[in-house]
């Protein structure tokens, strides 16, 4: 039961490690950005999960609503999502420029070309 109760947190850990692994291990700059995205998403899940109260609904002031989830982390994560989108966009834009400049988006080839400089 405990495992299932913490299921979301396990998902967070798996996503985080997957993303992190992609960032480190992949050679392709676009894939690195994808990995970075997965990494960030895991944190979004983490925040949303911790705010959830069992049986809680949206925090609306109305008759009969006693239990509601904590809205603050949700709001925070909206901000973090915006930041994440901006980061992804900028990262991809940089990859486009790198492709123009180097003619490749493979990390090792870029490095080889940089060493020639």
């Amino acid at each position: 039961m405990e495992f299932l109760g913490l299921l979301n947190y396990w998902i967070v850990v798996v996503l985080m490690m997957t993303g992190f692994y992609i960032v480190i291990a992949h050679n392709n700059l676009v894939k690195k950005i994808v990995g970075l995205n997965i990494f960030q998403v895991s944190v979004f899940v983490f925040y949303i999960t911790m705010a959830k109260v069992k049986g809680g609904t949206a925090p609306i002031l109305a008759e009969g609503i006693e239990i509601y989830s904590n809205p603050l982390p949700h709001v925070l994560i909206l901000t973090a999502i915006v930041v994440g989108v901006a980061t992804t966009a900028l990262g991809l834009a940089l990859v486009v420029r790198i492709h123009d400049a180097y003619g490749t988006i493979e990390d090792d080839e870029i490095e080889a070309r940089e060493n020639e400089l």
Partner: peptide
């Protein structure tokens, strides 16, 4: 090389910021 420097900084900086949150 400024482009790749910026890209690498972006990756590392984002990881840092994510760790922070």
């Amino acid at each position: 090389r400024a482009l790749t420097a910026a890209y690498r900084y972006l990756v590392i900086g984002t990881i840092g910021a994510t760790f922070y949150i």
